[in-house]
């Protein structure tokens, strides 16, 4: 059995803890991180918009005029994904596989879950109140399209303030 824990900045510890609790001892846990290429691309684009600054020699040391900050961001993003998964693996405290993907985040997660038996993810929306807004757009997409059972956890303790909304008025009244 394969259990995938979707590791996202900020909310990952709850996911790791839930995966540890939910996965049987003989199962394989995969820590999955997806990097959004839009962020380095925005830096590439901002640099491309600077007219006249490109340098004849493509490779210049980072942090110099004529070096594309997007390229540096790609390296930094890869490094930080690796560090995040390392921290998650340490918190998990049992053997696991690490998987780093790059692409449209919600689609990559669904694709990665194709052969899994369980996908663990944390709510990525408004964490102050229970309700539909506690799922962000990416989380919503993954929950709706996941090909396997999904374990949806709160990143911290579930908010206590969230009483159920009043029921809709009974048409008979």
């Amino acid at each position: 059995m394969t259990v995938i824990a979707w590791i996202v900045e900020g909310t990952w510890p709850a996911c790791v803890d839930a995966a540890r609790r939910a996965a049987p001892d003989d199962s394989e846990i995969v820590l999955l991180h997806v990097t959004d290429p839009e962020v380095p691309e925005a830096a590439h684009a901002a640099y491309a918009g600077l007219l006249g600054r490109a340098h004849p020699r493509e490779r210049r040391p980072a942090g110099r005029w004529g070096s594309d900050p997007g390229t540096e961001l790609e390296h930094l993003a890869a490094d930080s994904a690796g560090e995040l998964l390392a921290a998650a693996a340490e918190r998990l405290g049992r053997p696991c596989r690490r998987s780093e993907r790059v692409g449209r985040v919600e689609r990559e997660v669904v694709a990665a879950a194709a052969d899994a038996e369980l996908l663990v993810l944390a709510r990525d929306g408004d964490r102050a109140r229970v309700g539909p807004h506690s799922l962000g757009p990416a989380g919503r997409f993954v929950v709706d399209h996941a090909p396997c059972p999904v374990l949806l956890v709160w990143p911290h303790a579930a908010p206590r303030t969230g009483a159920l909304p009043p029921p809709p008025p009974d048409p008979a009244d």
């Binding site: 901002a46 600054r53 900050p69 961001l73 930094l76």
Partner: peptide, 12 residues
């Protein structure tokens, strides 16, 4: 130029 080339990587 300073913000795009020099500050953006630091912020990331």
């Amino acid at each position: 130029d300073a913000t795009i080339v020099l500050l953006t990587p630091v912020v990331f």
